[in-house]
Amino acid sequence: MIKVEKLIKTFHNYKRREGIKGAFFDLFQREYKEVCAVCGVSFQISAGELVGYIGANGAGKSTTIKMLTGILIPTSGLVCVAGYVPYKQRIEYTKNIGVVFGQRTQLWWDIAVIESFRLLRKVYEVDKKIFEERLNNFNEMLDLKDLLYIPLRKLSLGQRMRCDLVASLLHNPKVLFLDEPTIGLDVEGRVKIREFLAHINKTEETTIILTTHNLDEIEKLCKRVIIIDKGRILYDGLLSQLKESFSCGKRVIFVFDEEKTREELNNLGFNGQVGWKKLEPLRYEASFDRKILSAAEIISKVMAELYVKDMSIEETAIEDVVRKIYREGNVNL
């Protein structure tokens, strides 16, 4: 469905000089430098996939999305979505996609939401019967009923985002691009949108590309993730595999009734295979390699020797994985 090959986008940025003197010189001459926002990205996404596109601010993910949606023209490389080259056949192409920008609404600010929908129906040339049917469907899933007759500016952020989602799906697009759709929403709003997306992906087989900073969401929605940093792809593959290979280090946290010395803990008989770290008074962390030891072994041994008031097993969170990837700048599986 989506094919991207060696995609490159460079921008010209100018440097601003400092101070009054610098600003004065800037009036007459500016220094430009070329910035590579996306440098050589390749991937393929097949129909019906739900892919998470992850990256820090300025990593190049928005730029990629904008090239995929036909907003930006690539400096070089190949983009092909649903059989179209987005920037070349833009008008025909956009009938096949839906786009949601988290920070920007597609709808008209001052008119009732339903009016915006009706206008979009004409823009995308959707048959009236199909339109009503789809709208009814979405209404039920996202319970929009009461919102439809209110001007957009009076809606809350979460309500607005739900309406924006519906607007992007009215014409039954083959591909849906979501650029940070849950930015600034509360937990409940996020859950609603997440469930909706999962449903759409399943029932309508819409290909969905989702960028977000909220990794929790990616974890609950996407099987596959693409991680981008500094314009390059760091990882492209299954989320579970990523977690698997990174969470080989597991941790158990113990709370004891009294302070323990390092010696005491090291003498528990793990032959140095467990690393101990004091987190707080009375709280200690035991980290170990899952391939060598199991959590059960450690727990039973510690509990046999010492009095344990409380304990917990910590799974490596996806956030830790991503943080680690960024720090290291590559993924070695």
Partner: peptide, 12 residues
């Protein structure tokens, strides 16, 4: 305010 004015050279 002075610096802001300087920043917009086209406007100038």
């Amino acid at each position: 305010a002075f610096l802001t004015m300087l920043a917009y050279r086209i406007q100038y």
